[in-house]
Write a protein that binds this DNA or RNA. Structure first.
Lengths: 323, 323
DNA sequence: ACAAGCTTTACAAAACCTTGACAAAAATTG
DNA sequence: CAATTTTTGTCAAGGTTTTGTAAAGCTTGT
């Protein structure tokens, strides 16, 4: 997976100076004397800084002007500096342990975010929720964000809505924000021309589209070229899209089991229309409910995110072999 | 098979220079020194640029004039550049270079894009469509993008779907992509704490949400703090959201006139629930159809984008005065 | 033919770099 | 408390890199 923490932006010293408020000469002096920042260099020797460096210098600047000695704090981490400025006149224990996020810690981090996000939903604070989401995406990466934060959060919201603690409008608000994040979640994925193609949608009558959307994003992260069609589409339309794009797979999400006679009919029709050479993948909360039909027409049922990714890999390699 | 030759449009360097605001000599220098763009060539050796190249140069131009070093950012992707400028607290100058682009030219440009985008929809080429959209947002800016490109395009798509040239799936595909662009369209707007608040949604039974989404974006660009709730919400839920957020206005979009008895009922209920101190704004293709009810309960009817913006300004200043 | 392109070479202003020095402020010591 | 170090911010000199612009001479295309 691509490293999300890449310092996509790089600045020269004058910009850094303007932004951080520390004069260029001083920036260099702090580097020379205490390695307060350690910029990379261009081929010609010019210093190149990251956003982090700027943040760091900003904090160092504040700290020194409020009395701290630069030689003492120059090597503090960002977090330490923040703390330092919070409890202003107090002494913070030097704890230069740089935290490396292990998988376990990351999971804990995600759980922490779930709580914070749920609190924002409960308070109906859209801005706060969005802000948490944005931070979480950067910290966790797209995949972990979806699997360890979004999915548990949606489950939690659904549960509390059913129990009456939340109203439908809470869920709507959260959905709207999540959908608006699509762009960031899929970002940076210049998929190749030869990537296998997939159609993602939701059968007619299924309005709750978030599951399908997340499936589409996961497939994209896996290198597929996905065409996402949104919700509530008849089988014919999905089949047409398959033809147009020459897709190798169709993924549909089934979240509710309202009209029990419509879904099976649509599934059968879809299989008939797309033929047997196109993989039909079904996921969603209520997919299990239709097991009979799914087995009948030969559908791959998604058991878990891990399973979905595995399916995608298998299909992709089968597809590559067929070429 | 799909025509991937991107024949869409090709420009010579003088055109590129005018549109992007970067002098011809400099465009060549950037190419020679940093491969900032890599145009193809005609048989005779003249450089041939694409829309993407223009968007790229435009962004590079902005980035350099806000302090970034060209050598550092020349090879950034479009997405990276956008992020760079979004995260940039520097002055987002209203494009002094683009005084060249008169309103008329800009309109022509938008029309050009409408054609290209429609062609992509017709070819069911989601990737191409998205790429055109991204370039157009950079070139036109959010507001012009929505008003001069998106709106005509959606009208055109709707017309051709009704006439049978397009299928519903074409429209779904386009909608899905447009929705995924929400994030770019609204970004850049760190609205203040004291901004007036607004709820945007679609009444129950109304699934087509794009109009509401665009209204929400426009209001945000105007400095409002908008909570977008998505489609298909009962009046009670909308009213609850108003209470939670202490919103001063509610905007709802009505695109279809299916169940003629439900909408009026919902409108009346909504007015009753939110009281008379909250502005109720209604737009959408089919809003005129319900004129009787709208007048009865005191609704502001949106006549045009210009009108909508005017309403927003009036409400905002009335709100500010009341504080 | 003539405007618009292309390449190469050059140039100069602006921005950086390093080294080394210096004085005010802060800390330490006698 | 005064004298002595240390720490810190600033500056200057002299050299290099980056970057926008331009001129010269030739080619392309309408």
């Amino acid at each position: 997976m691509t490293n999300f923490k890449d310092d996509s932006s790089q600045y020269l010293i004058s910009t850094v100076s303007k932004r951080s408020g520390v004069k260029s000469d001083l920036v260099r002096a702090w580097e020379r004397r205490y390695q307060a920042v350690t910029p990379t260099r261009t081929a010609g020797g010019h210093r190149v800084y990251t956003d982090q460096d700027i943040a760091r210098l900003k904090l160092l600047n504040q700290a020194t002007s409020s009395g701290h000695s630069i030689s003492q704090i120059a090597r503090f981490s960002l977090d330490q500096l923040k703390k330092l400025l919070q409890h202003d006149p107090s002494i913070t224990l030097p704890d230069p342990n740089n935290t490396v996020l292990l998988t376990g810690e990351r999971k804990f981090l995600a759980e922490d975010y779930v709580e914070k996000c749920y609190a924002a939903v409960l308070a109906f604070d859209a801005k706060m929720l969005e802000s948490h989401f944005e931070n979480a995406i950067v910290e966790l990466g797209s995949q972990s964000f979806i699997e360890n934060l979004l999915t548990p959060l949606l489950t939690k919201i659904d549960k509390h809505r059913k129990s009456g603690e939340l109203r439908p409008v809470h869920e709507h608000m959260a959905s709207a924000i999540i959908r608006s994040l699509t762009y960031i979640l899929r970002n940076n994925n210049p998929c190749s021309e030869h990537a296998p193609r997939m159609i993602v949608s939701t059968p007619i009558g299924q309005i709750y589209e978030l599951g399908a959307l997340l499936a589409a994003i996961i497939a994209e992260l896996k290198g597929w070229q996905v065409t996402y069609l949104g919700a509530d589409l008849p089988a014919e339309e999905i089949a047409v899209a398959v033809k147009y794009t020459n897709a190798r797979a169709v993924t549909i999400s089934i979240s509710f089991s309202n009209d029990d006679h419509i879904i099976p009919k649509e599934i059968r029709r879809l299989r008939k229309l797309i033929g047997n050479n196109v993989a039909l993948i079904v996921g969603g909360r209520s997919a299990a409910y239709y097991e009979a039909v799914l087995d009948e027409v030969g559908v791959v049922k998604i058991q878990s995110y891990e399973h979905f990714r595995q399916i995608l890999d298998e299909l992709a390699s089968a597809n590559a072999a067929a070429l």
